[in-house]
Amino acid sequence: MSTRRNPMEPQGLGHALETLGAWVLALLWILPLAYAFWTAFHPPEFATRFDPLAPLSLQNFVNAWNAAPFASYFVNTIILVTMILAAQLVLCTLAAYAFARYAFFGRDVLFMLVLVQLMIMPDVLIVENYRTMAALDLTDTITAIGLPYMASAFGIFLMRQTFKTVPKELDEAARVEGASALQVLLKVYVPLARPVYVAFGLVSVSYHWNNFLWPLIVTNSVGSRPLTVGLQVFSSTDQGIDWSIITAATLMTSAPLLIAFLLFQRQFVQSFMRAGIR
């Protein structure tokens, strides 16, 4: 491995100043989070008072957990992101395979139509999609939250690009061996695209774990509300301004993603990179 130094790295005083700048910015960036952690892990009387001797406490989390049906919200969110991801993986893989390897009639026009969704996302079509869900009698169900996102243009695009890099010879060899189209897809293409699936999966899960506006509109009961909506209902109505409990609830809802991110930092960063660069 070469260890050539980049001569354009800052040196001497410049290096010190830039390091200082980078650290100040980083500390500013985690300040709101650190503040939330402080408030959530200390008794309410220390919520806005900084005393290094303040006792640590988990009581805020207990209170928040007992004050709203967070267990159902967690279950709903987990069902939601699993359902969306499973559907996306199947639908996008099939479509991407066709777009990458089948010269069927109307392919290019259809592909352009798919790409339209990259700009005009379901996020902004709330009025008509709500009308559709009402007509299908699906409002206030987890299915209704997920349905508009199941065919992901982004996923199709990402996987098509990946499938196109698979050597045609591999495909042909498998077919000569007597593999069917689906077998070729599952045995040749999908295994080779594994890193892209991981990247897409992470991006999809974090997007839908965090999604808020559409679930807020289409759900109105504990049975279907995901965490984000549950948190909003909880913090805007039930609690007045008990910040200790609200920040505890806030951290609780973000905890799974935050912990996963801390554990798999590199994969997260690389996945977002891979998914964005395409």
């Binding site: 910015l25 980083a26 500390l27 960036w29 985690i30 709101p32 989070l33 503040y35 939330a36 974090s206 774990w209 965090n210 808020f212 965490l227 984000t228 948190l231 909003q232 913090s235 609200i246 920040t247 806030t250 951290l251 809802t253 973000s254 993603l257 935050l258 991110f261 997260f268 960063v269 977002f272």
Partner: peptide
């Protein structure tokens, strides 16, 4: 530090 805000839900971040 720079990347963490990205993966948190906007709704949670807004509360903070």
């Amino acid at each position: 530090a720079y990347f963490t805000p990205t993966i948190l839900p906007m709704i949670a971040v807004a509360n903070i």
